[in-house]
């Protein structure tokens, strides 16, 4: 079976899973449905020949599930408030998103076809990565050598986000005093 067929199957599964996650009432079920979507992403990474990413995505999924369940699922399950959302507003939103999809289709047509990427810079990395950096894994040679400053900036973002989360959780709100 060609790889496109597998990926189409997994992607359709993920779209259904995300719609279920958004529309279901119970919050625990919604969190688990999003976990299914993330594990689908992990399997797609294996099909697309990215084993490092598959492992990282799997770990991310486990940690995100733990954080969400620990934070949101209390002794009594939190139910979504019965929303009387405006039907007209939802209709306008869906029509707008479909229009975006229509215009995006013409943009995605201009991109290189699936399976034939532009390999200008990457071909240099593939040819000379081992000689330049001495790393057998070319992905790590890019992260830690060619694009080390990018990685430094991204780690700064991660550090700031964790610092923000810790700070927000430590502040005592006025109603508790």
């Amino acid at each position: 079976m060609p790889i496109e067929t597998w990926l189409i199957f997994i992607l359709s599964f993920m779209i259904i899973g995300s719609i279920v996650a958004l529309e279901i009432k119970d919050i625990l079920s919604a969190v688990i449905a999003v976990g299914v979507v993330g594990l689908g992403v992990s399997i797609s990474f294996i099909f697309l020949q990215a084993p490092d990413l598959a492992i990282v995505q799997f770990l991310f999924e486990i940690f995100a599930l733990i954080i969400m369940v620990r934070a949101f699922v209390k002794k009594d399950y939190h139910q979504e408030e019965p929303s009387k959302a405006n039907k007209i507003l939802i209709g306008i939103t869906i029509i707008t998103l479909l229009a975006i999809l229509y215009f995006a289709a013409s943009v995605l047509n201009l991109l290189p076809q699936f399976g034939e990427p532009l390999m200008n810079t990457a071909q240099y990395y593939l040819n000379n990565g081992a000689a330049d950096t001495g790393a057998a894994n070319l992905v790590t040679s890019i992260i830690l050598d060619y694009r080390a400053y990018d990685t430094l900036g991204e780690i700064t973002v991660l550090f700031t986000a964790i610092l923000g989360a810790l700070t927000v959780l430590r502040i005592k709100s006025k109603s508790h005093r």
Partner: peptide, 29 residues
């Protein structure tokens, strides 16, 4: 396969975990 997007997405996934934790903390407060 092209290793450049894989390298960039690898850090992007980790950052997503951090931002998700920040959003969860804000929602809890």
């Amino acid at each position: 396969v092209d290793p450049l997007p894989q390298a960039l997405v690898l850090t992007s996934i980790v950052i997503e975990l951090g931002t998700t934790a920040l959003l969860v903390a804000l929602a809890l407060k």
